[in-house]
Design a protein around this nucleic acid. Structure first.
Lengths: 246, 246
DNA sequence: GTTGTAGATTGATTTCGGTCAAGGACTGTC
DNA sequence: GACAGTCCTTGACCGAAATCAATCTACAAC
């Protein structure tokens, strides 16, 4: 079931049946595209499943495709020659993936969970976008928002300590993984399931897996969070987390 | 004298006299705007000088203005409550500053050198942009390119060691500060003047001023660079720098 | 049940870069 | 020239996080 809070702006026909009210409403609000145009774009797209751990795009690939996330979570990463990895972005449902108007993609894209995406040939998409200013406008707004998020993350990577990084990460996750019902806007989640392994959290925060583990253990010991299983988090003391986040 | 290699896509009338061939050529290539449209936009803009160290936008300001850099270099920074600072972007001539279509700007903007910018009221700019798809398209391309650069920098902040950070920084500077004649495309600069103090280099790389200083001293001792003055750098062994950059 | 395995935790140790502190080198003013 | 101020460098020391090295846990296959 997709998350209806997110604006649906590039829709695959199959979505139409999923939650009609949602789609129709969001199409009007967010995409600014009339129905025939949506259909035109949708027919160019190919729906694809990506299972957890499977790559969708390789770093330095000729950037031949772009995609829209329908379901699941994917990571964008860059790596050094000697194998160090940094997660530079995370794509959630309705997020856009890939690099239009460019030659190569700077990041690899790998699914963190089983995911479904709607894939477009980059050339087709570029052409379609240039002919539909409303679509480009939406893409611009989203790219600007992503740039803001990325810059906030630079502060975390460059200037925050390990405890601050972990606290910030958990608060961020609790906002982005809030699992609300269709159309409902309620606050950040108190408990959620991480789409990341410990190693991936480390790659996101610029830490090692051991440091991540130790910080989690510490938060648990201090009663700030509960960790019912490897991937599950329950926030017990949000105030404490906010203090720690710096 | 502005740097004519960069595409000039938002031009103030005064530029017209600076390097007519350049402007005309770049206008045609890059902006996709016809002359009357450029004039319309230009009349909305107000030219402003910002001296080194002077702020242009404050973090968390209501984002009331956007701007185009005419001359000089500016830094975009975010800060924590306790005063730690991270430079999250650097704006060079022809770069765009500010956050269209958003409520607040996430970063402060401060001039690193004496600078001249062309300032637009955000509302005016937003309206104008929405009416000129070609302008939005250019803005989208630039924002995507900036996002790529920012993500590459995340790898540096999260995963590189101090020597790697410094080497990467110097190579990056040598590319961006290449001072070529009008229209000429020659390679990266062998010597250049940094627009940053040591503290600012530290804020850019997520290091302390002492570590930056020590790494510079080391590169000098190893004969990789010469440092004729505080702000001047001459690259003696580019290969060594590239090895060190990781 | 046993075994195997990938992921996570924990502990011991090291190291890189931060912190603290002192001194040096430009720059400008008088 | 003396001085003041700012920025930079250098040294001594410390500490947070990385590294190295065992386990431990959850879970799947048999």
């Amino acid at each position: 079931m997709h998350d209806c809070r997110r604006p649906v702006w590039l829709v695959h026909p199959e979505w139409m049946s999923a939650c009609d009210t949602c789609i129709v409403r969001n199409r009007a609000i967010c995409a600014g595209l009339e129905h025939p145009e949506i259909t035109a774009l949708s027919t160019m797209g190919r729906r694809r499943s990506v299972s957890a751990g499977e790559p969708l795009i390789w770093e330095d690939d000729d950037s031949l495709l772009v995609a829209n996330v329908i379901e699941g979570v994917l990571k964008l990463t860059t790596s050094t020659a000697d194998g160090r990895e940094q997660i530079v972005g995370v794509a959630y449902p309705s997020d856009f993936i890939g690099r239009p108007f460019g030659q190569t993609s700077a990041a690899s894209v790998v699914a963190l969970t089983d995911a479904r995406v709607c894939v477009f040939a980059r050339n087709d998409f570029d052409r379609f976008a240039r002919e539909h200013p409303e679509l480009e406008h939406k893409l611009l707004e989203r790219t600007l928002a992503e740039l803001d998020r990325t810059r906030a993350w630079m502060m975390l990577l460059g200037r925050k300590s390990a405890p601050e990084k972990i606290a910030t990460f958990l608060l961020d996750m609790s906002e982005r993984l809030a699992d609300n019902g269709c159309m409902a806007h309620i606050g950040p989640a108190r408990q959620f399931t991480l789409p990341f392994s410990r190693q991936q959290v480390a790659d996101l925060l610029g830490l090692t897996i051991e440091t991540v583990s130790r910080q989690f253990t510490r938060l648990k010991a201090d009663g700030v969070v509960a960790l019912p299983s490897r991937r599950d988090v329950e926030i017990l003391d949000r105030g404490a987390l906010e203090m720690l986040a710096g």
